[in-house]
Amino acid sequence: MRKVSFASLLLILITAINVQAQTANEPEMARVMRSNGKIYVVVLVLATIFAGIIAYLIRIDRKISKLEKNK
């Protein structure tokens, strides 16, 4: 447990340092989403659609289970 938390702390620190190094260079905002030719926008859209479809399918699943229960 302690090992895990140490590792995550290290990870957070490293990312924080990374972000700081980036902000020093240029004024452009929302860096992650605008990096690499805005490919992460596509990732975000895909994640949204995937999450939406999964949520919708789970809802259908629940509705069907409810029907199955009260025969």
Partner: peptide, 15 residues
Amino acid sequence: IINESIRNLYFHVPM
């Protein structure tokens, strides 16, 4: 401006 996010065309428009 649009850069690589043009690929959203495959997802946003078919919706």
